[in-house]
């Protein structure tokens, strides 16, 4: 397996990205590299365009300017057919799960499999969906339930199961722990970290959760002033003299999160 060596080969490259909504400039000259095999956390204040950045990378938002390469292929101006080959290799978890409400959880997980691999026999697809559901930490009886019957945390897990349906190389997570209780959030962090190790995923993770950042992220990209002002490990970020970064990680919440992480590591 040649692809697993954790070299610094970028799996996502963003260069000179510019996004605007009417008069409002969201991104200006934004550069970002995501390396293969890492969990990259993306942080930034509200309205700094974290989700817009993700939507630009996955092609839901056409940027005004700039270059975006994912898995070595340019994402801008692609035909629908070409884009399919890339879409097969990534999985996306939207903020609220974005499950198809008319399908059961298991059917949701089966949608990408049926779309891309229609020749796999239905009983095998059902089995694949079942173990993906179990892998995402859902109980077995969640399979035939409809999204409206699930709690917020379960919906996120179901969304994760769907994102993992095709064994992607690249996983995009938009605030996966938002709205979960601390225990649920910690379990979700652990789940993502263990899946990342097992399946050798590259994870692009938008979050506000300092615990998530400190526990599972290899590097953190900070969005501010319309661009990525720094991408580094948290200790290195702390050495930077940027007021927002200092306030974010060294504020009372940041310190508590770091402390509890250290205690956890020591224990």
């Amino acid at each position: 397996m040649t692809t697993t060596t954790k070299n610094n080969e970028p799996i996502i490259t963003v260069r000179g990205l510019r996004n605007t909504f009417g008069e409002q400039v969201i991104h200006e000259n934004l550069d970002l590299d995501v390396r293969r095999g890492e969990i990259l956390g993306v942080v930034g204040g509200s309205g700094t365009g974290k989700s817009v950045l993700m939507r630009s990378i996955i092609g839901l938002q056409t940027p005004d300017d700039g270059e975006i390469e994912v898995l070595g292929e340019s994402m801008i101006g692609r035909s629908e057919d070409e884009a399919k080959n890339i879409r097969r290799r990534w999985g996306i978890l939207f903020q609220n799960g974005a499950l198809f409400s008319t399908l059961t959880v298991a059917e949701n997980v089966e949608v990408p499999i049926r779309e891309y691999f229609p020749y796999i026999r239905p009983p095998v697809i059902d089995e694949i969906a079942s173990y993906k559901i179990a892998m995402s930490g859902l109980p077995a009886n969640a399979g035939p339930k409809y999204p409206s019957e699930l709690s917020g945390g379960m919906r996120k897990r179901a969304g994760l199961a769907r994102a993992l349906a095709l064994d992607p190389e690249l996983l995009f997570l938009d605030e996966p722990t938002a709205g979960l209780d601390p225990i649920g959030a910690a379990a979700f962090d652990e789940l993502i970290a263990s899946l990342q190790k097992r399946l050798d995923l590259t994870v692009f993770l938008i979050t506000h959760d300092l615990d998530t950042l400190i526990t599972i992220c290899d590097r953190v990209a900070v969005l501010a002033d319309r661009k990525v002002i720094a991408v580094d490990t948290i200790p290195n970020l702390l050495a930077l003299d940027h007021p927002w970064i200092q306030e974010y990680f060294n504020g009372p919440r940041g310190r508590t999160a770091a402390l509890s992480h250290k205690e956890g590591a020591a224990a």
Partner: peptide
């Protein structure tokens, strides 16, 4: 081998559609 073990861990029969 470890991957095989992992998938075997998640072998829980789950139904796909409601009864």
């Amino acid at each position: 081998v470890s991957l095989l073990h992992q998938v075997s861990e998640f072998d829980v029969p789950a139904r796909v559609r409601p009864e």
